[in-house]
Design a binder for these strands. Structure first.
Length: 854
RNA sequence: GCCGCGGUGGUGGAAUGGUAUACACGUUGGACUUAAAAUCCAAUGGCCUUACGGUCGUGUGGGUUCGACUCCCACUCGCGGCACCA
């Protein structure tokens, strides 16, 4: 027997698999179709353990499905646009495109070393013009439908660079590039109207249980639907700046607690609220201005301060509570968010903790409108007096009603009827701002014409290609604006001089729909072939990171719903099942990072142990979504297991009966040569366990079952061929190289020794199926699982006192079993001098005595 | 604060309400070896016991049950996400 040398066999088989196109998918196959998707990678240049963890799992599942007789599509591509490419370009003077495509080449090679059965013939690289032209096409469609629109939003703005900054590009409230203090500024950007899909994006419970519950909960929270009311208050502002006359305006508040309307003692506006300039009084002006200025800065500088104390300033103006005509002061405070609801809030210190804190600080009145009992009249003096639920009090015709209901609905009806307000549904979800002042992204296919305004690029002119020559380090304008030849175009409408939009799209646009394009990468006529997509989507399973819970996976769902509305597809969710992978930490237990120096490089581990050992180790570590440190000893353990598997080949019986000489695994061929009942039972038990576990992605226990079986096989003198073949087949998805090698050794040996004419034909018909990965998955038979003797524990008052070995044919006979238990020597001892009050016998499981003294 | 997930040996973890700790790592002892590595065999939750065996034991306290890691209630600690959303 040769030594197990992973470095030799792994490269050999990887090459052979590619040569034989073993994993190429046939889209028109009649077999059951399974599209297995693993999140594609950003081409950072190096494959890390995270990629291994995820792709190995996808690969195991894919190989398993193939052996079950399915046509499997396991593609991969690259999420190739993004900031790191631009940063590398700036620091290392390599063009982002060259940097990216070099990395892709290198990472493709690294992927090969994993032994993953990816079909590389069908891929998608988002930085290819052939890909991103469809980003542009989708954008134009969205524009046409009013889903993409130009709007204004507050953004982080660097006044020196004249650019919008992402949150992560702000350090200490200052621009990461030039150190200028960042301000909030209202900037025009392109938006996708995510909110138009808010309701459809909400997970309505039991239907989609194959998406993780935490994800569904988080997405629903993120969407944050609430059903409340908008209530209008009249504003009295005698001494407003604009006029000395009595001025009247109106301000709307949004609340989900309309039942507390009689407890309003003040009103608060967000510092950005438009009405402020209108209602502010002369006396208060300077104070208010100072406050607004301070709060603009504060949102950046003091974001991380844990307990933000509430602050505010009085405007000098008052408004009238419509339900009781009460005059209440209008304040400004930054605890009110301008972008949510109406940017104005009614202050109810008696029933809201935040309002109470604010009222306490500024000495505003707190009225009890919700009581502990229907006649509670206790004052609201401390935080513990604030009640959100209870009974309505001090609210004339509603007193005594229970909250939230029926009080809330009754008051809503009444407010609506009186015309004081109307029902309103609010979402926390915002529309998606996709404009980026960056170079390495999809150009937005819009043209700005002085005469015609914003004009979409005609579909026939797509793609709007990214120009290669630009200055991607400009200050004060987006990089694309420096490519003048590219920027200056004719207006498609009036043919006059016009300029291209110089911003690019958020990378999350690119990856919201890549799995559609995998199916039809080279299609230049349409975004994808509807027939192929109909046949292959939704995804069987989508494996990826939990960090994409409210980003990527939500956006993809949005795109899918949009595609549905365009009539491109007839499904509404793109994946039947979503699974989150685990995270491998450094050996020190903290996140792997270059700066910590705790990065485990997969390439080096492959050199020492081989890909199979790493695959096995990663999957054996624990449940698939585990977060655990890399343990060098653990890899060694996996390697050890493979060596024992390798050593098993010498125990395999050489004599083969003719009927079994083919390489098909057929458990029922009557070839149990050399196998005892115990052997058979364990084999079938293991097939069952491994099959069921892989189906549920419980790889760790599947591997444990194989280990148990190996322990059994290792103790035997000889291992039957049937056992060995079955073992290799079950292990094949996990460790594809070593099993392929051992399989080939077995088949070679077999064919030289046992060639018969009847088998020859079988061999020929299997010529295209030389690989273990093309074999059929072993099938278990329940008849082998039955055991002749079963262990039945005997409990006395809940404690196991003995374990009886009983013949299975008596197990259904209650009285016989009970008698055997009572007569058992050990049990007798425990029952002595006690009275048996009850005997519980659960057939095939346990027998339980309840005894008392005397 | 809110939402979600979790707490089991020295470690990673396993257990449809039915023998808690499968499997692996580590450790200890043994075999092989001049020696080491590798490999193989055995032991391995705590406490008491020479042993047979007993007893305690799945974060804490209670409950349901013949029987609870598993179900229910309360608490506690840890992790993840959201976080002044009215």
């Amino acid at each position: 027997m040769k030594k197990y040398l992973p470095s030799e066999i792994e490269a050999k088989w990887q090459k052979k698999w590619v040569e034989d196109s073993l994993y190429r998918v046939d889209f028109s196959s009649a077999k059951p179709k399974k599209y297995i998707l693993v999140e594609f990678a950003y081409p950072s240049g190096d494959l890390h353990m995270g990629h291994w963890f995820t792709f190995v799992a996808g690969d195991i599942y894919a190989r398993f499905c193939r052996m079950l007789g399915c046509e499997v599509f396991l593609p991969n591509g690259f999420d190739a646009f993004g900031l790191p490419a631009e940063n590398a370009a700036i620091t290392r003077h390599i063009h982002p495109k060259d940097w990216t495509y070099d990395n892709i080449r290198r990472m493709k090679q690294q992927f090969e070393t994993m032994g993953v059965s990816i079909d590389w013939d069908k891929t998608a690289v988002t930085a290819d013009a052939g890909y991103y032209r469809w980003n542009q096409w989708i954008f134009l469609k969205m524009y046409e439908k009013g889903i993409a629109y130009r709007g204004k939003a507050m953004a982080n703005w660097c006044p020196k660079d004249a650019t919008v900054l992402a949150d992560e590009n702000i350090e200490d409230g200052k621009c990461w590039r030039c150190g200028t203090e960042v301000v909030k500024k209202e900037v025009e950007q392109w938006f996708l109207k995510l909110t138009a899909y808010a309701d459809r994006l909400i997970w309505s419970d039991p239907s989609q249980a194959d998406w993780p519950k935490p994800l569904r909960a988080a997405q629903n929270d993120w969407i944050g639907k609430s059903e409340g009311m908008e209530i209008e208050f009249r504003v009295k502002s005698k001494q407003s700046l604009r006029s000395n006359d009595l001025q009247e305006s109106r301000v709307k508040v949004y609340t989900v607690f309309p039942e507390t309307i009689f407890g309003v003692t003040y009103m608060v506006l967000a510092p950005e609220h438009k009405l402020i300039s209108e209602i502010i009084t002369k006396e208060q002006k300077s104070q208010v201005d100072d406050y607004i200025k301070a709060s603009q800065k504060k949102s950046e500088l003091e974001r991380k301060i844990e307990e933000r104390e509430k602050t505010g300033v009085f405007t000098g103006a008052y408004c009238i509570n419509p339900v009781n005509g009460k005059k209440v002061p209008i304040w400004i405070a930054d605890y009110v968010i301008s972008s949510y609801g109406t940017g104005a809030v009614m202050g109810v210190p008696g029933s809201d903790h935040r309002d109470f804190d604010f009222a306490k600080k500024y000495d505003l009145e707190a009225i009890r409108v919700i009581g502990k009992t229907p006649d509670d009249q206790s004052p609201v003096e401390s935080a513990s007096d604030v009640l959100e639920f209870g009974w309505i009090v001090n609210s004339p015709q509603f007193n005594g009603l229970k909250t939230p209901n029926p009080a809330r609905e009754k008051i809503k009806d009444w407010l609506t009827e009186k015309g004081f307000g109307q029902r309103k549904t609010q979402y926390h979800l915002h529309d998606w701002s996709i404009s980026r002042q960056r170079y390495w992204g999809t150009p937005i296919p819009m043209i700005h014409c002085d005469k015609c305004g914003i004009v979409p690029v005609p579909e026939k002119d797509l793609p709007v290609e990214l120009p290669y020559e630009v200055d991607y380090t400009p200050q004060g304008k987006p990089p694309l604006a420096t490519a003048e030849e590219w920027v200056n175009v004719k207006c498609p409408k009036c043919s006059g001089p016009a300029k291209r939009d110089t911003e690019t799209m958020d990378g999350f646009v690119d990856n919201s729909w890549y799995f559609y394009r995998y199916l039809d990468e080279y299609n230049e006529k349409e975004i994808f072939d509807k027939k192929i997509v109909k046949d292959w989507l939704p995804l069987e399973i989508y494996i990826g990171g939990a960090e994409h819970t409210v980003g990527h996976t939500l956006y993809s769902r949005f795109f899918t719903k949009f595609f549905h509305d365009l009539g491109l597809i007839d499904f509404d969710e793109y994946a039947k099942k979503r699974v989150h992978h685990g995270v491998i930490l450094g050996p020190d237990g903290s996140r792997m990072s270059k700066s910590r120096g705790n990065v485990v490089n997969p390439d080096e581990e492959v050199k020492s142990y081989g890909a199979d050992a790493i695959r096995l180790y990663l999957m054996f570590l624990g449940p698939f979504d585990i977060v655990a440190p890399w343990n060098p000893d653990g890899v060694n353990g996996a390697y050890h297991f493979l060596q024992r598997v390798w050593g098993l080949q010498d125990k395999v019986t050489q004599s083969v009966i003719p009927a079994e000489a083919g390489i098909h695994i057929n458990i029922d061929s009557g070839s149990k040569a050399g196998m005892t009942n115990v052997d058979l039972r364990l084999m079938h038990k293991t097939i069952k366990k491994v099959t069921e576990d892989i189906e549920q992605l419980k790889f760790n226990t599947a591997i444990a079952a194989l280990m148990e079986w190996l322990n059994h096989l290792s103790r035997k003198e000889k291992v039957a061929r049937e056992e060995y073949k079955t073992f290799l087949s079950l292990l094949a998805p996990f460790a594809p190289h070593i099993t392929e090698e051992l399989w080939s050794l077995l088949v070679t040996r077999n064919s030289t020794q046992n060639e018969t004419s009847s088998n020859e034909q079988r061999e020929t018909s299997n010529e295209q199926r030389w690989s273990i990965h093309q074999q059929s998955w072993p099938v278990f038979d329940n008849k082998y699982l039955e055991e002749g003797e079963i262990l039945i524990p005997v409990q006395i008052n809940g404690k196991v006192r003995n374990i009886l070995k009983l013949k299975s044919d008596i197990l259904s006979n209650r009285s016989v079993v009970e008698k055997m238990a009572i007569e058992d020597e050990k049990i007798k001892k425990f029952l002595e001098g006690k009275s048996v009050k009850k005997i519980v016998y659960i057939p095939n499981k346990i027998i339980s005595f309840v005894v008392g003294n005397n």
